[in-house]
Design a protein around this nucleic acid. Structure first.
Lengths: 191, 191
DNA sequence: CCATATCCCAACCGATCGGTTGGAGTCTAG
DNA sequence: CTAGACTCCAACCGATCGGTTGGGATATGG
């Protein structure tokens, strides 16, 4: 049987995603990744060069394309709320990605894989503008940033949620976030 | 001259705040704190027991009371926006505290110093309700959580801001955040 | 004035860190 | 068939980690 080097790479990236999401760059040791992946850690250096370069690859691999196939379902402010719900559900299905986003903001100077992601954000901005025809581009950008911040923050500032709304469960919080996204969208549409 | 043990403690806490804010719990070594504070690291163990207990003390010391003396300046949705601006300005004056909040969410299971902070959040909720008389308590909580998330997220999800609104400076972002807080408050006031 | 409690600090400890190496096993081009 | 490239892994490297210790300096109660 031939070697499945692509699969070995994939296993390293998957384990890296899990470990970095859980404990961040500084909190994760290369040995942890080797253990989680079942791959000898020397392979990580052969494939990726260093722990730091590997981290960048993991971030790019998971964060690049995060918003690409997230369509705005319909038009009007409610569609923006539904879009926020879709992003929320993406975090439900894969909580690592929200945490990776947060680690990126804290541990890195700038965003990883910036080129493609900038254009992806511009795409989403355009889709929001299509859904809210009366909105100008700058307002749509601000709306997008606030919605992403609300959804992502709900997943990463977990301590805050526990302090402010200790009785709410995750579905309550999802509903409130979607509602707030709708409100923001409505304000952008009719200023 | 007598020893100024209170000052030594303070110097350790200050250095811990700086270092933990910059690189997090896992990313900061006890030697770093000793170097930054000018205090021998053995003192940290004498005063605080362990790196972990020291971290909890730093978080409690800086995060407890964060919202205590933040009054809602006036009434109506605009006052809520102004309150968001005050919180923003607090982060401007002391950016460490926003980052500590984010590290807390990522590296800890639950919030530090929960007891007092929960009641502090309840206090702020009450103040928001006073400013928005028609709002019910649950809606006010959700409003508070979203506003704090928006302001804090703008400081900690820095990569996102750079991707979505690359041309905006910090004042633009402050203005947009305040505006969005007003919009959310208006929706809570008149549902 | 002395016992003693506390403070301070350099040196030290075993464990673990990121990263490397040497060599055995596995495939492929000619 | 074989030379050479690639994959894999245990063992290893110096540096740094969190945490400790022993001893000298400083203050205080009797």
């Amino acid at each position: 049987m031939p070697w499945d080097t692509a699969r070995t790479r994939e296993r390293l990236l998957d384990a890296g995603s899990r470990q970095f999401a859980a404990t961040g760059f500084a909190g994760t040791s290369v040995a942890d990744i080797g253990r989680d992946s079942g791959v000898n850690k020397e392979r990580l250096y052969a494939y990726f060069g260093s722990k730091r370069k590997f981290f960048d690859q993991v971030l790019a691999h998971r964060l690049d394309g995060l918003l690409d196939d997230l369509e705005v379902p319909g038009t009007g402010p409610e569609a923006v709320g539904a879009w926020a719900g879709l992003l929320w559900d993406r975090y439900v299905a894969d909580p690592d990605v929200a945490r990776l986003l947060a680690w990126e903001g804290l541990e890195l100077d700038g965003p990883a894989a910036a080129a493609h992601r900038t254009s992806a954000c511009a795409d989403v901005t355009r889709r929001l503008q299509d859904a809210l025809p009366t909105a100008d581009e700058k307002a749509a950008r601000h709306l997008l940033l606030s919605v992403i911040t609300l959804v992502t923050g709900a997943w990463t500032l977990a301590g805050l949620t526990a302090l402010v709304t200790p009785d709410d469960d995750r579905d309550d919080r999802r509903a409130a976030t979607v509602r707030h996204a709708v409100v923001l969208a409505r304000a952008v549409q009719a200023p």
